[in-house]
Amino acid sequence: MGCVCVKPVKHTPGYEDPVILASETTFTVSEVEALYELFKKISHSIIKDGLIHKEEFQLALFRNSNKKNLFADRVFDLFDAKRNGVIDFGEFVRSLSIFHPDTEKTEKISFAFRLYDLRHTGFIEPDELKEMVLALLNESDLCLSDDVVQQIVDKTFAEADKKGDGKIDPDEWKEFVVQNPSLLKNMTLPYLKDITMAFPSFVMKSEVND
């Protein structure tokens, strides 16, 4: 009589059951499993501990592990929900789910607000907005005088800060995004729609049928 030996699949620390992750996010089980392939690739690129460190995140984003970027730092910090300096698989999947084309716009609006609320005050304030504009100019070839940067910040505030109290609150942000939908463009990653095509190798190892 024959027997079938099934070798248990080894997972890295922080691994979570794809069935549970799929139930909590916009992804299917197959998509979560495909994301695990991407996660493994990123999380083993420098420090092979199965967690994404900031240098590995920067390497995946910029092909350079030392590139400092305010916005990449903010995204990393928001992905790192447990605030322990690394991104584990569950955090990776839950955060990327916000960028899924089928995820509710309100979730995307709220994530973008938290991204831009640099000092976690619950508001986007003029000095934060100016700091972000300067950071963007620093990473691009665009050169603008301080006066022009100030005008851009003032004009944006005049449009977004409807209550005129000198800060943008979540409701004002929502209204501003509805009027300027292009601001949410980078909150949607079309790649996530066909993640199983991008990482087909998971299909051979899949432990669960959708």
């Binding site: 991407l38 990123i42 995946a60 984003l61 910029f62 970027n69 305010l70 916005f71 990449a72 730092d73 903010r74 995204v75 990327l96 960028f99 991204l115 831009y116 907005l129 972000m132 504009v133 950071a135 963007l136 990473e139 691009s140 665009l142 603008l144 022009v148 005008q151 851009i152 910040v153 004009k155 944006t156 449009e159 977004a160 501003f176 300027n180 292009s182 601001l183 463009k185 980078n186 990653l189 790649y191 993640i195 991008a198």
Partner: peptide, 25 residues
Amino acid sequence: RPAAMNAFELISTSQGLNLGSLFEK
């Protein structure tokens, strides 16, 4: 006219916010 730009529009072009690069091989 740069002063007519929307600050958030400008910021959203940051490479650090382009998570699509995570999926590029």
